[in-house]
Write a protein that binds this DNA or RNA. Structure first.
Lengths: 195, 195
DNA sequence: GTCTATAGACGGATAGAC
DNA sequence: GTCTATCCGTCTATAGAC
């Protein structure tokens, strides 16, 4: 059995999945320290690979960020479709969908969040989505007065919840079962939806 | 009339208040781009002064950040004292106090927020305050079950609101009068406070 | 594919002239 | 107090050897 690699150690996971190691390390560090606060060097160190390998796989640092945020499905569109089912009992559906969509991807949420909030870039992908899809959809579905304010406030409640659960990770909220949060949080949110 | 300055242009505001110019520029840029995303050079450029003057006045970049966040009064303590008055009608008092305390200092809020969220530093001053003062005080005052979760969720609602109004600046929320927001937001929040 | 070496830019901080 | 000049560190990105 001949060895292909000319130099380089036999890495942890043996063969091809250094790529995965890079992605995992990047996700973790972007989530913890934001995009600007993370260096390619420290990612490479954690992944046990050479820095230049990152460029080789992902082009540059931004390419890595993009690759990091690829999701099997897009939670935001799923959430928007829940909104379209109308205001009756929306709070409960909205919260359950929001939480169960993002819970498996906490790191990605935190990463997008930190990347978005840490920079003043109003064109950041997360903002675009939040504004265009969530708020716009909400405005269309709500009834009564002050729809635009209420739509933004409802979105803000989701942001606040996610901040506590995924970004700051306050234990009481971060570790609570989805159904507990739905039960506690939805009545108040429904008040805002109804009037 | 003899000129004191040996070199240097006659700056915009004439005499001593370059210091103020530096602080204003810093506040704006920290608020817009976060601490890491702002360079001392760009602050100096905006303020119309030399870079090294910043070091001279404030020691280093962190010193400038600290100086930037000095407030006449501490909003968070004022808010905590409102909480201590008990759960009856708390939502309304809490929201009114929160908003009217921070409204005059939007840039400072945004700056603290971006600085806190953009880095993974769990020792950041804003987090300390939020956790220790706000949540702790809330837990003490609430009645019924799940106090710790509800306390964190209420804090999260304030964070979400402030995110919309001060950080992302969604127009519907950013430009609304305080009393409109109090009227729309407090009923739902009170539900969470009461049970 | 993997690594070395280095280019090239930028940022923070300081010494010292005036 | 103000400015010039500069040092030193860190970062991204790339060229090229093996």
């Amino acid at each position: 059995m001949t060895v292909k690699r000319t130099r380089g150690r036999p890495p942890a996971g043996d063969v091809a999945d250094r790529r995965t190691a890079i992605l995992d390390a990047a996700r973790g560090q972007f989530a913890a320290q934001g995009f600007g606060g993370t260096s390619m060097r420290s990612i490479a160190r954690e992944a046990g690979v050479d820095v230049s390998l990152i460029s080789h796989y992902f082009g540059d640092k931004s390419g890595l960020l993009v690759a990091t945020m690829q999701l099997p499905v897009n939670p935001i569109e799923k959430i928007a479709s829940v909104v379209e089912d109308g205001p009756d009992g929306m709070a409960e559906r909205l919260l359950r969908t929001f939480l169960s969509s993002w819970d498996p991807h906490r790191d990605i949420f935190s990463s997008m969040y930190r990347t978005t909030m840490g920079s003043g870039d109003s064109q950041a992908p997360m903002l675009q989505l939040a504004r265009n899809i969530l708020i716009t959809t909400l405005v269309k579905v709500l009834e009564g007065d002050d729809r635009d304010v209420r739509a933004a406030l409802i979105s803000g409640q989701l942001i606040g919840l996610a901040t506590m659960r995924y970004v700051i990770s306050i234990p009481a909220v971060a570790d609570a079962p989805v159904e507990d949060l739905v039960r506690l949080y939805s009545p108040g949110m429904q008040v805002l939806i109804d009037a």
